[in-house]
Structures are given as structure tokens and as C-alpha cells.
Design a protein around this nucleic acid. Sequence first.
DNA 1: CGTTCGGTTGACCATTTGGTCAAAAACAAT
DNA 2: ATTGTTTTTGACCAAATGGTCAACCGAACG
Lengths: 232, 232
Amino acid sequence: MPVQTPLPKVSSYAETGLVPRRAKGSDRRMRQQKPRTRIQRQNRETILEAALEVFSQHGFRGATLDMIAAQAGLSKPNLLYYFASKEAIHVSLLSQLMDTWLDPLRALDAQGDPVAELRAYMRRKLELSRDFSRESRLFANEIVQGAPHMQAALATDLKTLVDEKSTVIRGWAAAGRIADVDPHHLIFSIWALTQHYADFDVQIRAVLGEGRDPMAEAERFLDTLFTRLLAP
Amino acid sequence: MPVQTPLPKVSSYAETGLVPRRAKGSDRRMRQQKPRTRIQRQNRETILEAALEVFSQHGFRGATLDMIAAQAGLSKPNLLYYFASKEAIHVSLLSQLMDTWLDPLRALDAQGDPVAELRAYMRRKLELSRDFSRESRLFANEIVQGAPHMQAALATDLKTLVDEKSTVIRGWAAAGRIADVDPHHLIFSIWALTQHYADFDVQIRAVLGEGRDPMAEAERFLDTLFTRLLAP
DNA sequence: CGTTCGGTTGACCATTTGGTCAAAAACAAT
DNA sequence: ATTGTTTTTGACCAAATGGTCAACCGAACG
């Protein structure tokens, strides 16, 4: 049994120890990209919502189909009628998430005011951390453990978008409209600082103690931080 | 079966689903705080090192005793001769880690030059991320999932130390020796920015592409960032 | 040399868990 | 109502996994 999991291409069974198996029954039907009936769309929705709750709290391995089924109010075999496997639910959740997650960066406008654009990006990311902390933790869990299901997406979609926006930012720096900082690391710093408030929520609350509002304080602090960092 | 795990005091079996059970055989002996023989000290060491490797890569639930045993080059029953349970290994690792992790902050000297002290703290944390990335990921895994084994330590040891250093920093700000920023969030930002490079390593490498040195670049970037943030 | 005791392990066990399946409901179409 | 299709589930299964235990090994000590 390999202890050092080799980095997989797209989807790894190494993590779960499962051997890929042709699913037979429902699989054929579920392969249809678009769920047909209303009940299908609705149940898939319910399952994904439940799975998000459970996966984000326990990680992939820590979550069980029974937990997800209970949370969704469905029977376990019923889950597997809508998704081919536990892994399929996880992957579905992750790929769906990726889009939402990148939207704020896509919105960064090369024509806008540089400092305002970057601060707005930071604020949008912070809002995501506040309003979609489960999604953030799901993502964090995945990446911390080596992104066994997302490697590909990171190196393609994500990299492409980041590189593109980095060019814009580099342009702004070259024009002297913001300070001369490395665009990639500037973006990393926005990710790190905003996601930290979602992913390390327990720690932050433990340290701050009762009666404080981490997110509200974070917004003020980060606003100051980026204003000072970016000033030309 | 509860899907929503209630937050436990110190050590929770809820996560594993196991019911506490009196260990009989080795437990009595292993309760002795200090390992007696050299071989005991050495094997415990070996096991913890192996467990660190495995836990940091797969999380608590994702790791198995077989993986750890294989990595350590010991048999599974032998692991359980030295530690009462899988959980005991995990807890041992975490409490050991806590100290190392806080050292850099402890070293923050109220008598030193404010900006230099804070930048040095940041740099020490970044070095930890570089040289002890497994420890960082172990910690991240634990916190992201709600810190089931560390709640207490966070709210006591950690909070105490952070509050203490926050007072120092607030003093510096009040004296106009650094910019007037919230001390707690300043510390959070150092944690977030440095640990991000360890915990999200895969993502960072995927985005930067080949032939770059994330840590070296991070050091320059973060130095700029904190210099600009802290300038009075 | 034999006993003792720390250390080690093969075989085993109970539970958990992802997944299957045949049959039953529920629902639609005729 | 009758027939066909989709949805649901109780009962199972095989593999994985944390943990146990009785027996075994090896070296120190009398």
C-alpha cells in the first residue's frame, strides 16, 4: 500500500482506496448532462446542498454517505440513484464551486481605476468568505490535501485567468498607477487574507473572544492594508 | 446519527464515531509521561514522524493506522503498543506542534524596534511554512474542520499569548512608532499570508507554473507588504 | 542456563462504510 | 384500469479499518 500518494491527473481513487468500477444501474441515466425531470433537478440540488454541509465540515474521507443521506432526508441508495458514487458528488460540488469562486476575479476590469478595482476585488472575495464559508472550507480541505480532484482545473482554468489578470495588473504598475508589486503574489495575498477568515474561523473567534464581529473588523483592516500596499 | 457534530470540550470521539473504551494492555505503561528506555523514546519518535507525514497529507480520517505503520516501518499492533489509539497519536502530534508554532510570536520583543520586530516575526513564520510545511498542513486540517482536538488550547494558551502581544503592538501604535492598525488583525494577517504558502502550495505552484521559487518570491513580496502597511 | 520482562507480531474480531440489487411504490401515458 | 417508466428502499455484501490478544522473541540478570 503506497503511503506517498502519487499525484493524480484529474481524478484519483488513490485517496479513497477504491478501484474504479463501472457503475451499471442508474449511471447511464445520470450521465445525461441535464437532469430531465423537475424532481431530478430538485433532488440533485438537495443532495449537493447536504453534501456541501457535510464535506465542508468533515472533509472527503470524514464524510459518510449516511451523514449526507441523513442531512438530505433521503435514503442512501437513493443518493446513489442520483450520483454514481460518493466521489461523483464531491467532484460535482467542486467543479460547480470553481466557477462561483472565480467570478470576482473575472470581474476585475482593466478599464476601471486600478486601486478601486483591486480593493473591490478584495471586498468581493471577503463577502464570499462571509456568505459562503462552507464552500471556502470545502475548497481549503481539497487544496490542503493536495487537490486530488482539482489538479487539472488549477493548472488550466485557474492559471489562465490569473495570468490574464496579472498582465492587467502589471500594466497598471508599469504605468505607475499602483505600487510596483508582483501581480501573482498580490492576488495570492488577497486569497490568503480573505479566505483565512472563513477557513480559520474557529481560531479567529477563539482568539478574539466573545462579542466581536470578525468579518466587519476584517473589512476595515484589509481595506487599510491594501490601500497602503497599493498606493503608488 | 448526528450530522451536526457538537463542539467538544477537549477530545471528541464524535468525529470518529468511536466510543471511548478503556485500553488495557499497553495503556498503563504508556501513561507514564516520560518514556523509560531509549528504544521507547526512539520508537515513539519514529511513529510521530510517520504520523505527521500521513496525517498532514490525508487528514485525521483519511489516514489509517496501516499507512502510518508502513511509513514507520513497524507493525500495526506495535504502534498500538506505544500509543493507546490513533487519536492519541494525533493529539500527541498536535500538542507538540502548538509549542513550536507559537515560538516565533513569543520571541516578539517589546523592547526592540517595532517595524523590525514585526517583520522579523513575519519572516520567522514564513520560514516555518517553508521548513515545516507538513506541520502547517496538519494544523490547517485540524482548524478547518473545527479544531475538534484543539478548541481548548486555542481559547487559552493561544489567546493569552496573542492578547499579550497585542497589547505590546497597541502600545507601539499609540506611540506613533507604527501605523495605527488593529493588533489582532495584524497578527492574523501574518498567519494568513505565511501559512498560505505552505497550506495552498499545490495551488500556488499550479498558478505560478514551472521554474519559479514561491517561497523566495513570497519573502520579497511580504517584506514590501508589511513595510508599507506598518510605516507610521 | 533459565527466568523475566520489555518489545513484537500473526491471526483475529467487530464495526463502519461504499456500494448493489431486486422488488416495491409512485407516477405517467394510453 | 393497464401498462410502462421513474423513483424509492430494505436487505445485503465485500472491503477497509481500529483495535485486541495470546504467543513469541531477545537480551539482561540472577
